Simulated assay, not measured.
Amino acid sequence: MPRRFVTLDVFTDTALTGNPLAVVLDAEGLDTPAMQALAAEFNLSETVFVLPPTEARHRAQMRIFTPTAELPFAGHPTLGTAVLLALRDQRAGLTDAMAFGLEATLGTLACVVEPGEGRGTGRFRMPVLPEYLGDGPETGPVAAALGLEPAEIGFARHAPSRHRAGPPFLFVPVATRAALDRARVVPAALDDLGPPAALYCYTPDPDGLGHRYQARMFAPHLGVPEDPATGSAAAAFAGVMMQFEPLGDGEHAIVLRQGVRMGRPSSIGVQLCIEAGALRAVEISGGAVLVSEGTLLV
Rank of each mutant, 00 (worst) to 15 (best):
R4S: 07
F5M: 03
F5R: 04
T7S: 02
T14N: 06
T14R: 15
L21T: 05
V23T: 05
V23F: 00
D31C: 02
D31M: 00
T32N: 05
P33N: 10
Q36I: 01
L38P: 02
F42N: 03
L44Y: 12
S45E: 09
E46V: 01
E46T: 04
T47M: 04
F49S: 00
V50G: 04
E55F: 06
R57H: 09
R57P: 00
R57W: 01
M62K: 00
M62G: 00
M62R: 00
R63E: 02
R63A: 01
F65I: 00
F65Q: 03
F65D: 01
F65K: 05
P72V: 08
A74V: 01
H76F: 03
P77I: 01
P77R: 03
L84V: 05
L87E: 06
R88I: 03
R88N: 10
D89I: 00
D96T: 14
A97R: 11
M98P: 04
G101C: 04
L102A: 07
E103M: 11
L106P: 03
C111E: 08
V112A: 07
V113H: 13
V113S: 13
G116R: 05
G116H: 09
E117M: 12
E117S: 13
R119V: 01
R119M: 12
G122H: 08
R125H: 08
R125N: 04
P130Q: 09
G134M: 08
G134R: 09
G136D: 11
E138R: 08
A144C: 07
A144E: 15
A144L: 10
L146N: 05
L148H: 12
E149Y: 08
H158N: 12
A159V: 15
P160G: 14
P160Y: 12
R162L: 13
H163N: 11
H163S: 08
H163I: 11
R164Q: 14
A165Q: 03
P167W: 02
F169A: 03
P173C: 14
A175N: 13
A175E: 15
R177D: 11
R182P: 01
V185N: 07
V185E: 05
V185S: 05
P187V: 04
P187N: 09
A189R: 08
L193A: 09
G194V: 11
G194S: 14
P195K: 08
P196H: 06
L199M: 12
G210A: 14
H211N: 12
Y213F: 15
Y213C: 02
M217S: 09
P220V: 12
D227V: 02
P228I: 03
A229K: 10
G231P: 11
S232T: 12
S232R: 13
A236E: 12
A236F: 09
V240Q: 08
V240K: 06
M241G: 12
M242K: 05
Q243I: 01
E245L: 13
E245I: 04
G248P: 10
G250A: 09
A253I: 14
A253H: 15
A253V: 15
L256A: 12
Q258E: 11
G259D: 06
G263F: 06
P265D: 10
I268G: 14
I268L: 15
V270Y: 03
V270A: 03
C273R: 13
E275T: 11
L279C: 04
A281K: 13
V282K: 07
S285Q: 11
S285R: 10
G286K: 14
V289Q: 13
S292C: 01
G294Y: 07
L296A: 00
L297V: 07
V298H: 03
